[in-house]
Design a protein around this nucleic acid. Sequence first.
DNA 1: ATACAGCTTTTGGTATGCAAAAAGCAGTTC
DNA 2: GAACTGCTTTTTGCATACCAAAAGCTGTAT
Lengths: 237, 237
Amino acid sequence: MTSSPSGRRAGKSSLSAVASRRVERPAPLRQAVYDALLELIVSRTLAPGQHLVEAELAEYLGVSRQPVREALQRLQTDGWVDLRPAQGAFVHTPTEEEADQLLAVRSVLETYSAKLAAEHATTQDVKQLKRLQKAGEDALAAADAERLVQANANLHAAVAAIGRNKVLAEMIGLLDRRVRWYYTPIARPHSRDSWNEHAELIAAVADGDAERAGEVMRRHAEQTRQTYHNRKNIENN
Amino acid sequence: MTSSPSGRRAGKSSLSAVASRRVERPAPLRQAVYDALLELIVSRTLAPGQHLVEAELAEYLGVSRQPVREALQRLQTDGWVDLRPAQGAFVHTPTEEEADQLLAVRSVLETYSAKLAAEHATTQDVKQLKRLQKAGEDALAAADAERLVQANANLHAAVAAIGRNKVLAEMIGLLDRRVRWYYTPIARPHSRDSWNEHAELIAAVADGDAERAGEVMRRHAEQTRQTYHNRKNIENN
DNA sequence: ATACAGCTTTTGGTATGCAAAAAGCAGTTC
DNA sequence: GAACTGCTTTTTGCATACCAAAAGCTGTAT
């Protein structure tokens, strides 16, 4: 009785009081493998074009081939690796064409996301946005590029979340991460101006002005798109 | 020599003459399983909420558990099933909230897609669109609901393809299919009016008028959204 | 050089086993 | 008779082992 780790029943008994208690089931191993591999790819430890041998990854991560296979397949559908039949997985090599297409779609979705945010934002939400913006300002002052990138991602994710459209938020999250990865060699998030635009955006959201929020976001996105587009060469070193 | 199935080399030998020959590597089995399961889900042979037991599916399809597992995981990322840790796969049950979010995102993306199509369409492309429209008209005249749905999907896919943005086209394809599935019980694609709008759309694309094409598509999408939204009840029988 | 004949590596799949979690079934208690 | 408790069965998630066939890499003969 004492040794048993207590109830594991999941039925509809009278939990009333504990109803909100998160069950927190253990995430499958393949998820951990997915995260680990994604980290290796994003950090360029695994270079674009590189052949990923299942057995090697499995040994490196201390697991069997199966979870590695499953993680690789999810990485493919998310656009991080290419799975060539009978040849295996290769770290995806971004092309300029694809990068531009990604930026274009992201621009459209983020514009809509900003509109939704303006329509749904509570005062709480606005407060949070301002906190995130301040975090970015701090990183900017400290000239901490890493933190700035993160702050930028957080802010955009927060805007998407405020829009209350999960489908949209998830799509934006993926697109954002891919876009950032594509351009990491040349990114150095365009510093000062970019953050001034964020201030504008937050103001529009706070006013509940959907049209203006959308327009600001569109300008913001299109401008980054131009910035990238000018530096034609994506250096995949 | 005779028994060996001839060359399988894929290197850069002097194929000059045959360079364009598609190598056509055999699609992995998991892809076939994915298709089969998706078909079963879309056709409602597997009902929303139903628990999918790997072993059963494997036996039914005549394969082992592994390809089934992999197919199920891709089905999850595409939104067709839910994978609960340590419990397995359940056919996804659409909620009204999610359906509306999906429709909203689709509306935004299709609007952009129409704009792109108007900017890129060649006379060839326009011809093809008109062919597809005619196919729809025929189905409408024959009162063949099944074919009408297919014609509708084809037309939208064609518009997306003309836009020359693969990322966008793929997203729209998935969204479209999910949306249609969500509403299959009540869909009966809104017949006559809907196809008149298609004619308008094609005209705008033919004129290369991006703004108009986008506007027409937005109206079209928003109108379907309203149509669905009115019939509140999603019957998941 | 070029084409061909092995040899090796890697995939994609099969079969099997197993710990641990979940679901189901009792039986017991109040 | 409703709820807790313990036991059994089912199912997942992963490991291990094995194999055919494809892809890649030689070297060798032409």
